[in-house]
Lab assay of single mutants.
Amino acid sequence: MQRGKVKWFNNEKGYGFIEVEGGSDVFVHFTAIQGEGFKTLEEGQEVSFEIVQGNRGPQAANVVKL
């Protein structure tokens, strides 16, 4: 599992990016966020996640808020 901080997340569009220290930013879609109810992330929030290869490159999967 990787760890990072949410760079930004757009609730209306349902996606954003996670900053990884020493690495490239990783795309995150709301469907990758674990948990119940409305799935969103806050700027600066710490998360753990896996990186998978999506249609447009690397993206976050199994995102857990820390």
Results as ranks from 00 to 15, higher is better:
residue 63 V to P: 01
residue 11 N to G: 07
residue 30 F to Y: 14
residue 18 I to S: 00
residue 23 G to P: 12
residue 35 G to D: 12
residue 21 E to W: 09
residue 64 V to E: 12
residue 14 G to V: 01
residue 46 E to W: 09
residue 49 F to M: 13
residue 54 G to Y: 04
residue 13 K to H: 13
residue 57 G to I: 03
residue 2 Q to I: 15
residue 51 I to Y: 15
residue 63 V to H: 01
residue 10 N to K: 09
residue 43 E to V: 09
residue 27 F to M: 04
residue 65 K to S: 11
residue 58 P to E: 11
residue 10 N to Q: 10
residue 4 G to M: 00
residue 14 G to D: 02
residue 33 I to M: 04
residue 40 T to A: 11
residue 61 A to E: 08
residue 28 V to I: 08
residue 10 N to W: 05
residue 45 Q to G: 15
residue 38 F to Y: 12
residue 60 A to C: 05
residue 46 E to V: 10
residue 49 F to G: 01
residue 42 E to C: 11
residue 51 I to V: 14
residue 29 H to I: 01
residue 61 A to C: 10
residue 47 V to S: 00
residue 33 I to W: 02
residue 16 G to C: 00
residue 54 G to F: 05
residue 66 L to M: 11
residue 52 V to Y: 09
residue 21 E to F: 08
residue 35 G to Q: 13
residue 43 E to F: 12
residue 6 V to D: 00
residue 49 F to Y: 09
residue 20 V to R: 12
residue 43 E to N: 14
residue 31 T to M: 05
residue 34 Q to W: 08
residue 50 E to L: 11
residue 41 L to D: 01
residue 42 E to A: 14
residue 19 E to V: 13
residue 26 V to R: 03
residue 18 I to P: 00
residue 40 T to D: 05
residue 56 R to M: 07
residue 66 L to R: 11
residue 30 F to D: 03
residue 50 E to S: 10
residue 66 L to G: 13
residue 33 I to H: 02
residue 52 V to I: 11
residue 13 K to L: 14
residue 6 V to M: 05
residue 39 K to S: 07
residue 53 Q to K: 09
residue 15 Y to P: 00
residue 43 E to L: 11
residue 23 G to N: 07
residue 53 Q to W: 13
residue 28 V to M: 04
residue 11 N to Q: 04
residue 26 V to E: 02
residue 56 R to L: 07
residue 5 K to S: 10
residue 38 F to A: 05
residue 59 Q to C: 08
residue 61 A to S: 13
residue 51 I to H: 11
residue 21 E to C: 10
residue 55 N to D: 02
residue 38 F to W: 15
residue 14 G to P: 00
residue 65 K to F: 06
residue 10 N to G: 08
residue 50 E to N: 15
residue 64 V to Q: 15
residue 15 Y to V: 04
residue 21 E to T: 14
residue 24 S to Q: 12
residue 20 V to W: 15
residue 5 K to R: 09
residue 66 L to P: 10
residue 18 I to H: 01
residue 63 V to D: 01
residue 14 G to S: 05
residue 50 E to R: 13
residue 13 K to N: 05
residue 61 A to Q: 14
residue 20 V to K: 15
residue 61 A to Y: 14
residue 52 V to K: 12
residue 4 G to D: 00
residue 45 Q to D: 05
residue 48 S to C: 08
residue 29 H to L: 02
residue 22 G to C: 14
residue 45 Q to T: 09
residue 57 G to L: 04
residue 49 F to D: 00
residue 5 K to Q: 08
residue 23 G to W: 07
residue 37 G to N: 09
residue 37 G to R: 06
residue 22 G to N: 15
residue 65 K to W: 04
residue 18 I to T: 01
residue 29 H to M: 03
residue 41 L to P: 02
residue 33 I to Y: 01
residue 27 F to Q: 03
residue 46 E to R: 11
residue 60 A to S: 04
residue 11 N to K: 08
residue 48 S to L: 09
residue 9 F to P: 00
residue 65 K to C: 09
residue 10 N to H: 15
residue 59 Q to G: 03
residue 17 F to H: 04
residue 7 K to G: 05
residue 13 K to V: 08
residue 4 G to R: 01
residue 28 V to N: 00
residue 44 G to F: 05
residue 43 E to P: 13
residue 12 E to R: 15
residue 61 A to P: 01
residue 31 T to A: 04
residue 35 G to F: 07
residue 31 T to C: 04
residue 15 Y to D: 02
residue 36 E to N: 09
residue 65 K to V: 11
residue 8 W to R: 06
residue 25 D to T: 07
residue 31 T to D: 04
residue 52 V to G: 10
residue 51 I to C: 15
residue 13 K to A: 06
residue 13 K to C: 07
residue 8 W to G: 02
residue 55 N to K: 14
residue 25 D to R: 07
residue 25 D to G: 03
residue 27 F to N: 02
residue 28 V to Q: 00
residue 51 I to L: 12
residue 5 K to A: 09
residue 16 G to A: 01
residue 15 Y to E: 03
residue 3 R to D: 10
residue 53 Q to L: 10
residue 23 G to F: 09
residue 36 E to L: 10
residue 29 H to A: 01
residue 39 K to D: 04
residue 32 A to F: 05
residue 15 Y to K: 03
residue 21 E to Q: 12
residue 16 G to H: 00
residue 30 F to Q: 10
residue 43 E to G: 15
residue 35 G to T: 06
residue 45 Q to A: 14
residue 40 T to S: 10
residue 14 G to N: 05
residue 57 G to W: 03
residue 40 T to K: 07
residue 36 E to A: 11
residue 10 N to A: 08
residue 12 E to D: 11
residue 9 F to E: 01
residue 59 Q to M: 12
residue 12 E to Y: 14
residue 2 Q to K: 15
residue 22 G to M: 12
residue 33 I to C: 05
residue 10 N to I: 10
residue 6 V to I: 11
residue 55 N to C: 06
residue 59 Q to A: 12
residue 46 E to D: 04
residue 4 G to F: 00
residue 41 L to I: 13
residue 32 A to N: 08
residue 38 F to I: 09
residue 30 F to K: 11
residue 1 M to L: 08
residue 35 G to K: 05
residue 45 Q to N: 12
residue 64 V to Y: 08
residue 56 R to N: 14
residue 53 Q to I: 11
residue 52 V to P: 01
residue 32 A to Q: 15
residue 1 M to C: 05
residue 17 F to N: 04
residue 42 E to H: 13
residue 62 N to Q: 15
residue 19 E to S: 14
residue 42 E to V: 12
residue 20 V to F: 06
residue 61 A to D: 10
residue 61 A to N: 07
residue 22 G to F: 11
residue 49 F to I: 05
residue 59 Q to R: 15
residue 22 G to I: 10
residue 6 V to K: 00
residue 9 F to C: 02
residue 50 E to V: 11
residue 55 N to Y: 04
residue 44 G to M: 09
residue 32 A to G: 11
residue 41 L to M: 12
residue 16 G to K: 00
residue 30 F to M: 04
residue 15 Y to Q: 03
residue 19 E to A: 15
residue 66 L to F: 15
residue 46 E to A: 11
residue 6 V to Y: 00
residue 55 N to R: 06
residue 45 Q to P: 01
residue 11 N to I: 07
residue 62 N to I: 02
residue 5 K to H: 13
residue 2 Q to A: 12
residue 12 E to I: 03
residue 19 E to R: 13
residue 62 N to A: 10
residue 32 A to K: 08
residue 61 A to V: 07
residue 23 G to H: 08
residue 64 V to R: 12
residue 42 E to Q: 15
residue 38 F to H: 04
residue 36 E to W: 11
residue 49 F to V: 06
residue 20 V to D: 08
residue 43 E to W: 08
residue 66 L to W: 13
residue 43 E to Q: 15
residue 66 L to Q: 14
residue 40 T to Y: 09
residue 56 R to W: 03
residue 52 V to R: 13
residue 18 I to G: 00
residue 52 V to W: 08
residue 37 G to E: 08
residue 64 V to N: 11
residue 52 V to M: 15
residue 57 G to A: 04
residue 38 F to S: 07
residue 47 V to Q: 00
residue 63 V to K: 01
residue 2 Q to T: 15
residue 15 Y to R: 03
residue 22 G to H: 05
residue 24 S to Y: 11
residue 22 G to R: 12
residue 24 S to W: 10
residue 38 F to C: 05
residue 7 K to A: 13
residue 33 I to N: 01
residue 6 V to G: 02
residue 41 L to H: 01
residue 41 L to R: 01
residue 30 F to N: 07
residue 32 A to W: 02
residue 27 F to W: 05
residue 17 F to A: 04
residue 48 S to V: 07
residue 38 F to E: 06
residue 58 P to V: 11
residue 18 I to D: 00
residue 17 F to V: 04
residue 2 Q to E: 14
residue 17 F to R: 04
residue 14 G to K: 07
residue 35 G to R: 05
residue 56 R to I: 04
residue 24 S to E: 14
residue 61 A to R: 14
residue 34 Q to I: 04
residue 57 G to M: 04
residue 55 N to S: 15
residue 9 F to K: 02
residue 59 Q to K: 15
residue 1 M to F: 10
residue 41 L to K: 01
residue 55 N to L: 09
residue 33 I to R: 02
residue 23 G to E: 12
residue 48 S to H: 10
residue 65 K to Y: 05
residue 53 Q to A: 13
residue 12 E to H: 14
residue 51 I to A: 09
residue 3 R to I: 10
residue 29 H to V: 01
residue 66 L to D: 05
residue 53 Q to P: 06
residue 19 E to N: 12
residue 17 F to Y: 03
residue 3 R to L: 13
residue 20 V to Y: 13
residue 6 V to F: 01
residue 18 I to V: 12
residue 60 A to R: 01
residue 40 T to H: 07
residue 60 A to V: 03
residue 37 G to I: 04
residue 19 E to H: 14
residue 46 E to F: 10
residue 6 V to N: 01
residue 55 N to I: 15
residue 12 E to A: 15
residue 58 P to R: 10
residue 46 E to K: 12
residue 52 V to F: 10
residue 43 E to I: 10
residue 44 G to P: 02
residue 3 R to S: 09
residue 20 V to Q: 15
residue 54 G to H: 15
residue 34 Q to F: 15
residue 64 V to F: 14
residue 32 A to R: 06
residue 44 G to I: 01
residue 41 L to S: 02
residue 59 Q to E: 05
residue 3 R to H: 09
residue 12 E to K: 15
residue 58 P to I: 08
residue 35 G to P: 04
residue 31 T to E: 06
residue 13 K to I: 07
residue 18 I to C: 04
residue 6 V to P: 01
residue 43 E to R: 15
residue 64 V to P: 01
residue 63 V to E: 01
residue 35 G to W: 04
residue 14 G to C: 05
residue 22 G to S: 14
residue 50 E to Q: 13
residue 12 E to Q: 14
residue 39 K to C: 06
residue 37 G to L: 05
residue 52 V to L: 09
residue 27 F to H: 06
residue 25 D to I: 03
residue 63 V to C: 13
residue 47 V to Y: 02
residue 44 G to A: 08
residue 66 L to T: 10
residue 30 F to G: 06
residue 51 I to E: 10
residue 19 E to F: 08
residue 65 K to E: 10
residue 38 F to V: 08
residue 26 V to H: 04
residue 11 N to L: 12
residue 54 G to N: 05
residue 60 A to N: 00
residue 16 G to I: 00
residue 1 M to S: 08
residue 29 H to K: 03
residue 18 I to F: 02
residue 3 R to A: 10
residue 52 V to E: 12
residue 24 S to C: 10
residue 32 A to P: 01
residue 42 E to D: 13
residue 43 E to S: 11
residue 19 E to Y: 06
residue 52 V to C: 11
residue 44 G to C: 13
residue 59 Q to F: 15
residue 7 K to T: 08
residue 15 Y to W: 14
residue 52 V to D: 06
residue 17 F to I: 05
residue 32 A to V: 05
residue 4 G to T: 01
residue 11 N to P: 14
residue 66 L to V: 15
